[in-house]
Structures are given as structure tokens and as C-alpha cells.
Design a protein around this nucleic acid. Structure first.
Lengths: 331, 331
DNA sequence: CTGTTAGCGCCTTCAA
DNA sequence: TTGAAGGCGCTAACAG
């Protein structure tokens, strides 16, 4: 009844009010003024639900994230948010904690027309009923891209990145390079492990050791490191798949009276700002976090505008930042 | 046209379909079966927009955050998300970066009926037109509570917490205790500064020094620390309003060949898990981050269910965790 | 330039 | 137990 109230107040039809509301040309200035005055007088606020129902678009994007407390994710999300906002879109955030039922509950919003598209950062490719839930709705995978999925993706070359990481450690004359990996259900974890193993081979390193962190918190990195140090033949270098896990690993190493990097070199992943300010400064593989989010939104909007647009698999480059935690002497 | 399609397929009316959809009693089992079959056969998905328009509730909550990359915020948001989800609500995330225009753009979703209520973690009390935008919609302030605002709030006692922080440092025989504060537009920053100054007085410390970080990243902590060290009479202890800022401060101290805690003691705020794993382990004031989010949602839902429910100002307690960064000998 | 009209898809009395 | 019908508030043809 609201647009109607305004219409009555201004002595025009609802169509005219709608026209000024949406800035359409073809309204006499005098009429426009009258409508504007009525809007102001009545403190009218358009009912967005009604508008969205009518126009069949919500200008909302669903973002499915495994864990927002993972600083990598939160930075990507900020990129997503900023770019979405710049295009007049809002984001609905789902923190799935990798629980399939939570993921699918949110995906229902997609088929329910609440959102115009979805960006997933979660390992959901194997979600049962995924195809049906997403249908052919616009979908972009961010940081976690399955080339076989019918979706665009924005990722880094995880395999190559892991390869670089190992190469760097090998170059520091490390022979027993271990990996602290994430949840192996994630593609990024699988891909980085492939890269890790391939690099070991290239560098003729026969020792290998992979431990999986139980979650993304530093305590998990600590625990994984403890398991590695408990081995009969412990590592002399660590490649951790996140800076946070690396912090935990370093703490564990220190507690055992070992030194970083003299006894054990440590290399992280992500390139969070504070990695440079740790002691020792943490070497890391820097990802373009903000940009991963930004490009995901761009690809998604492209697809929303033209549903027949082809799927694109984009890879952003990352950069090894060598600091004191992985080398005795700076380059 | 969709519920209608199902209705035709099942040979019933749309009303009946709606009834089984919403689980209302009074549908003959046989009929229900037929409808269910039709729903399955047609892969029907209810249009949530239409439903929300009709029922005038969206089961969505708006969360207005200054910066999701602030780990404190992201943990509170996770608490919000979890609790909301448990009650069948979804959250719309707005990362305002403290820009009033972004805040008000999102607040329009409130008056536009897109969300049923709002939780703000931002310093928005002075937003022009705030009252009108929020109207009497359900609103809870989280971690940043203005007792004068017509809204419930869930906070900690910032003044008391800062007092404790300073008391701890004073107890370590520190005489020149400086504060690295956040953006002074925030109430938490103002309140903690009041607590800081009050505590100095109580402990008969005449030296005082406050520097404001330009944002929430560690680089800002570094810069603030640099300014403090450039003073003629530099501090011998630092009270930083976040763990992240403390990391930057410590890095700066170290770069100047000073030691933590021997030369300068450092105390952070928030109690992020990795604060315990830094070197030296960071003393900090631990906040109940998850719980701040959870309680905010509970208060908000209460208000949504009963709009006449009174405003509640709740204070959660926090805890000083003394570690090596602030004391030469453990307690 | 402006008004009339017809839905968007759903829920919900009111009757039957 | 079921169906018919109205309307949530808005936009978009189509007339005038």
C-alpha cells in the first residue's frame, strides 16, 4: 500500500511514482517535484522484496565460505564485498564450517531466487544434489576450482606454487622437507600435495612427510608439527599451507628447543600482512587475496548478465616471499 | 506460476500445495502424497521472494561490520552466523570500511524489508539519518554499544578492561605506559582510553602517551609504535587495543634493537588463538568473541519476536591473560 | 507525459 | 478436507 499512499498524496498514479523512483525519463519536472515531495513527506521506503519479486532479480550474491575466521577467506570475502558493492550487489554470507547440510541449506536460497548467483570457496563439488540445487544458476568457484565442474573459477596454480615452495627450501640445502597440509577434501590441498611430491622428485629428495591439520587454526599447525617432530627422522624444513598453521608449527619447534631457521626452516602460505612482522619474519607464498575475490565477482556478474557466457577458468599468479624463517642468509 | 504448476500436476489447488509445503495439518495423507510426488517430479523450488513478500518477513539479519579482515570481527561474525543459522536465519554481511555512505546503503535494506533486523559492530551512532533509516526496526549493537541509542547492546566493559591492562603493566613496575589506540570515532576506543587514563591516575603515573592506529592492520601498529619511540622520553610499556596492532608494535620495537619485555612490555587485546604462539607469547585481554555474536543474535531475535521487548544492555566479561610479552617472570 | 491494468508467486481467510 | 479468491507492493506494457 505504500507506493499507492505516495501516489494518492501526490495526486498521481502509482506508475508515475514508480517512474520517478526509478529515474525514468518522461516525467514532467513539476510532477516529479510533487512526487518527490510526497515521498519525503511520507518517509516512504520502497519495499525491496516486492521490487525483487517483480523484477525477478535480487542483486544479492551468495558467498559460501568454509570458515570466515580463516584470514585468507576473510580477505577474499572483503574483495568480493567491495567489488559486489561497486556494482550495486549485496552479499549473503554463509560460513559452512564444511558441513554439507549447511551448504545445501544456503544453496536453497539460490533456487529460491533470493540470490542471483553464488561464489563458493568451499569444497562442495561432491555435495549430493549439487547439480540440482545450483541448476544452471550463475556460479563461480573461488580459490577452490574444479575444472570439471560446470562453473567458472578463479584460482591460483596450486601445484606450481607448492613446487616453488619446495624448490626454495631445497635450494637452502634442506633434505627432509615436510608438508603441513589442510583438509584433503579440498582441491587446493590435493593440488599442493601433488606439487610438493613432484618437486621432491625433481630435486631427488626421497624423504617425504605430510601431516594434515585438523582445522585452520594455529593449534592445528602446532599439533601437526608435533607429530612430525615425534618421528624417528624428523624434518629439517616445513612447507605449511597457511601462515596461520606456520605460526603454530614454529611455536612447536621453539618449544622443543629447536631453532628456526637453523634447525628447521619454515615456509608459510597466503602472505598475510603480519607474516612479515613475526619473529623471525615468515617466508610465505603470497596470494592475491583481494584480487581473487574481485575477479570472482566480475566473472559472476558477467554470467548473470549473459547466462550463455562461457565458463572461464582463470589463474592468478602468486609470489614467493623469502624471509628469515626459511633462510640463514638473505638472498 | 510454479506452485500452480505443481497444483495442476497433482490435481489439487494451490492452497493445498501451500499447505503441504508449510506442513500444516488437515491434509489427507493420500492428497499429501500426491502433492509430494508432484513436487518431486517437477523439481519445484518455492520462490522465497514471493513467500517473504507475502509473509512480510525475510528471516535475514543484516550485519554491519567495519572490517571483516579484523580477526576480532570475523570471529564475532562467526558467532553471529552460527546462532542465526541455528534459528533459521541467514545473514547479510556489510563490510563498511567505516564509510557512512556504505553503511546507509545497507541500512536501506532494513527499511526495504529485505532483512528483519540489524546487528551493528560499526561506529554508526552518528550516522546522519540513522534514526529514520532504522526507524523502530529491531537493532542490536555488538561490541560497540552506545547506551543512549535506542537499541540493545552486547559489549564488554571496555573501561574496566583497559584499567586492568594498565594495572597489570604498572604491577610489572612500568612507569611510562603508552597506549596504541584505534580510531577514536569508535566508542570502544574512547572508553578504553578513559580507562587507561583513569588507571594511570590511580597508579600515580604522570607519564602518558596515546597514539592512534590509522586502521586495524599490523602496519598501523608498527607506525604508531614508531611514533612513540621517536619521542624524547619513550615508553617502557605498551597497551595496544588489539593483538594485531601489538604484533606490529613488537616488530617495530625489535627493529630498533630493543627487547620485549625487558626494555618494553607489550600487552594486546582480543585474545586471538595465535597470540599464545608468538615469540614471545603475547599477553592480552581476552574477549568472548564468539559469545558476543551469539548473544547479539539472541537479543535481536527476542526483539523481532516481540517488538515491544525492552532494550537490554549486556556486558560480557573478559579476562587478562598474562604471558611473556609483559612480564619478566611468570606469575 | 500520465493512467490503467495485469501480473510476479505465494499464503490465507472464507466458504463449501 | 479442500478450493476460490484476494492481495502483499511493485514494475512494465499498453493506452490514452
Amino acid at each position: 500500500m505504500s507506493i499507492e499512499k505516495v501516489a494518492r498524496l501526490a495526486g498521481v498514479s502509482t506508475a508515475t511514482v514508480s517512474r520517478v523512483l526509478n529515474g525514468y525519463a518522461g516525467v514532467r519536472p513539476a510532477t516529479r517535484e510533487r512526487v518527490l515531495a510526497a515521498i519525503a513527506a511520507s518517509q516512504y521506503q520502497p519495499n525491496l522484496l516486492a521490487r525483487q519479486l517483480r523484477t525477478a532479480q535480487s542483486r544479492m550474491l551468495l558467498v559460501l565460505v568454509s570458515s570466515i575466521i580463516n584470514p585468507f577467506c576473510s580477505r577474499v570475502v572483503r574483495g568480493i564485498e567491495a567489488e559486489a558493492e561497486a556494482h550495486g550487489y549485496h552479499i549473503l554470507l554463509c560460513n559452512s564450517d564444511s558441513q554439507p547440510q549447511r551448504e545445501s541449506a544456503y544453496l536453497a536460497l539460490l533456487s529460491g531466487k533470493i540470490v542471483d548467483g553464488v561464489i563458493t570457496m568451499d569444497a562442495i563439488t561432491n555435495l549430493p544434489g549439487l547439480r540440482q540445487m545450483i541448476g544452471d544458476s550463475p556460479w563461480v568457484q573461488c580459490a577452490e576450482g574444479d575444472p570439471d565442474a560446470e562453473a567458472s573459477s578463479v584460482t591460483i596454480d596450486n601445484q606450481q606454487a607448492a613446487h616453488e615452495a619446495v624448490a626454495h627450501l631445497a635450494q637452502q640445502r634442506r633434505r627432509r622437507i615436510a608438508m603441513i597440509n589442510g583438509d584433503p577434501r579440498y582441491l587446493y590441498a590435493q593440488q599442493r600435495e601433488v606439487g610438493y611430491r613432484a618437486a621432491l622428485k625433481v630435486h631427488h629428495l626421497s624423504w617425504s612427510g605430510v601431516e594434515y591439520a585438523s582445522d585452520v587454526e594455529c593449534e592445528a599447525g602446532y599439533a601437526a608439527m608435533a607429530r612430525l617432530l615425534d618421528r624417528a627422522d624428523p624434518p629439517d624444513a616445513i612447507f605449511a599451507v597457511s601462515d596461520v598453521l606456520a605460526v603454530g608449527a614454529i611455536h612447536c619447534i621453539r618449544q622443543r628447543r629447536l631453532r628456526v631457521p637453523q634447525d628447521i626452516a619454515v615456509l608459510g602460505f597466503d602472505g598475510l600482512p603480519w607474516s612479515a612482522m613475526l619473529s623471525p619474519p615468515l617466508s610465505t607464498l603470497e596470494q592475491p587475496m583481494q584480487q581473487l575475490g574481485v575477479r570472482s565477482v566480475q566473472l559472476l556478474l558477467q554470467r548473470i548478465r549473459d547466462p550463455r557466457a562461457p565458463h572461464i577458468h582463470e589463474q592468478l599468479s602468486c609470489r614467493l616471499v623469502a624471509r628469515a624463517s626459511s633462510q640463514l642468509v638473505p638472498d
